[in-house]
Amino acid sequence: MGIEELKQLQLQIIRKNKTCNIIGVLLFIFSSLVLWVNYLSKYNLIELTIMAILIDLVFCVIIMAFVKSRVNGKNIRTFYKEFKNVFVLSSLQNVFDNITYYPTKGFSREFVKSIGMIDTGDSFNSNDYISGKYKNISFEQADMHIQEEHEEEDKDGKKETVWETTFLGRLMIFDFNKSFKSDIQVASRYFSAESLPWSKRFSRVRMEDIEFNNSFNVFAESEHEAFYILTPQFMEKIKDITKKLGCSVMFCFVKNKLHIAVNNYEDSFEHNVFKKIDEKKIQENITRDIKLITNFVDELSLDNNLFRREV
């Protein structure tokens, strides 16, 4: 499918959606009139009539949502799939080598749990899996959405379930250019201790950089390895890149790989089906999403292979 066909599909979706909305409004007006006439003439109670109309509104909304999903559901799924093929995949292929892209697949909860860097919460979703090479550095990444379930009491003492997002962003895994034996975690201080399983396993390491200690918590099995990986230059780079991102970031060094979790509350490589297809704007957004990957390789100099081999 090309861009023009994608635009045609979007027009078709919008048209069908509009038709559904008009039918929905007409259905609501008609049913409300019927209720108004019947209830008011029978019971002469205006409160009861208004209540019936409100219930009617809820019913109409539910019916319309069902009808829309039947009429447009398949088209919307096709749109998202084709959008990613037309715009995202081609952009990824321009920047990376050996690209693999699964728009609907991501990291499994078990895999993220096995890394142990972040609590996977009560609800876990992951998509937009990408793997490939940039400057000969292998990487994989996916979007991640983690939620915790809470019970909250309202003013009347009624309990209700609330889903709180604890992580919405990306997990990226890069080949690291230094060999190390033990695990190290560097987490922005915005991450709560409860969401960091490592804080219970390892002791906190204080680096010689006071500003770094104020911005990040470092947990490590071995203090020496923490100092080996976190050189003064590397700490500066971490501080710079985190400042530029303006959100909480976590760096985990596990099994000679660098795992980076960026909690930027963004769902990458997405486009709203009802939003106009502006190729330039879309391309800018995708480039920005791709740059998040390439910036880590460039700014942390992960392609520096000085330490890659040992005698």
Binding site: K178, L306, F307, R309, V311
Partner: peptide, 11 residues
């Protein structure tokens, strides 16, 4: 190889 090694040892 030895140069790479010395760099790592230095680190």
């Amino acid at each position: 190889t030895l140069q790479q090694s010395i760099a790592d040892v230095e680190e």
